[in-house]
């Protein structure tokens, strides 16, 4: 069965979705990702969807699920690289992906995660 590779980049994990995803691949991805967050202690998950020509409610639900599960494991999910036509279509479809942070590209997504880590670090430093 096809699996989507998960790469480690500093404190974050990077997933690039390039193919049309089926249920089985989506389930495998959720399993693999949660394992990887647990073993690496990653604090962020970047999901690059720049290759996706459409995002339907099935893929939208998968992104929402991944974000929710990752949050439970103390990792923040940022969906990056959404094509403009996909963004327009998603909103009209009624899927705002409100549970998911987004960034224009991987670089800016990484910055979001680093900023969060920086803020967490400052909070900890201020604790008596």
């Amino acid at each position: 069965m096809d699996r989507i590779p998960i790469l480690k980049m500093g404190d974050a994990l990077l997933i690039t979705i390039q193919v049309d995803i089926h249920d089985q691949i989506a389930i495998a991805l959720e399993n693999d990702l949660t394992q990887k967050i647990a073993t690496t202690g990653a604090r962020g998950v970047l999901i690059d969807i720049s290759s996706l020509e459409i995002v339907d409610s099935f893929i939208g639900r998968m992104l929402d699920n991944i974000a929710a599960v990752s949050r439970m494991l103390d990792a923040e999910t940022v969906v990056v690289g959404m094509q403009p036509a996909v963004a327009i279509t998603l909103v009209e479809l009624g899927l705002g992906l409100t549970g998911v942070k987004t960034a224009l590209n991987v670089e800016r997504g990484m910055l979001l995660i680093q900023n969060r880590l920086g803020a967490l670090g400052r909070d900890r430093a201020h604790r008596p």
């Binding site: 049309d20 089926h22 409610s57 099935f58 036509a85 479809l93």
Partner: peptide
């Protein structure tokens, strides 16, 4: 997946713009 690909190619064929293509392909997928 095959339905999506076929709808995309027919939408291209009649000259639908990118946003319209994306909308009809997404609707077809749903």
């Amino acid at each position: 997946v095959r339905v999506r690909q076929e709808v995309r190619s027919r939408a291209l064929e009649i000259g639908l713009g990118l946003v319209d293509q994306t909308k009809i392909v997404t609707a077809a997928s749903e």
